[in-house]
Design a protein around this nucleic acid. Structure first.
Lengths: 123, 123
DNA sequence: GACACATATGAACGAGTATTCATATGTTCA
DNA sequence: TGAACATATGAATACTCGTTCATATGTGTC
């Protein structure tokens, strides 16, 4: 049993193909852009938000109605609508006490469709 | 100051438009499906995974090369590749000691493109 | 102005998760 | 067989995030 502390530095990961690494690095997405993109997709990564977006693809709706359809508390819906608003995925209009939400992005439906295609294919 | 404990039940959220709620409920996405879809999009909600997927869209790569391009530890990359594998987003082939990863889904590029369109429009 | 109601929001709590560290597995080569 | 290396993985830690609870804000009505 030899002391492995001496050469612990050797137990690491080396670049195998420098040409591939260089080529990919040049065309690589910016770290900031990847961050923004991740933030965007993160919004779709929660079933409550997903269902809100789906419901709104069917009809403009007020907060109480969304809560009723999803069977979720008004507060939870409201918190999530704030996220969707900040991501510019939904817009709203006020009519008296009631606030109506609707989609604010034409990509949502397309992204949904691609996602559904994926999970249906891999079953 | 009256006791509000008596009618605290009244402070709640009521359905405003029963017709809309019924109509949307009928066409609503299944809870299970929404869950699966959320799990799928959750994968795109992390910048490390996003950058791995982006890198792989440019070229098939081994784990060490991916780590080099991203400037991340081999272990972190390996953990995330496991997630991507389980989601059937990447596949791999072994060549001796080296394992090469590549895309396993044609929807990835499309979904990326839609996401980028969104964040570019809302700037 | 007082009340009812639709919606928003801050704080707290619990659940989930990305990374790190240490180590295991699997393969090549001598 | 044993050293070297590419990759995988379990456990621990730190951080993020969704919901709940309590309450605030804003609007219409009497």
């Amino acid at each position: 049993m030899s002391s492995y502390e001496d050469n612990i530095e050797n137990i690491k990961c080396n670049v195998i193909h420098q040409d591939v690494v260089d080529s990919v690095s040049n065309k690589m997405i910016e770290l900031d852009t990847a961050g923004e993109l991740a933030e965007f997709f993160k919004v779709f990564g929660d079933s409550t938000r997903l269902r809100i977006l789906y419901a709104l693809s069917l009809s403009e709706m007020c907060v109480c109605d969304i809560a009723a359809v999803l069977g979720t508390s008004q507060s939870a819906i409201s918190h999530q609508l704030k996220v969707l608003r900040q991501m510019r995925l939904v817009k709203y209009r006020r009519d008296g006490k009631v606030i109506y939400y609707s989609h604010d992005d034409e990509h949502i439906t397309e992204i949904f469709r691609k996602g559904l295609e994926h999970i249906n294919e891999t079953k």
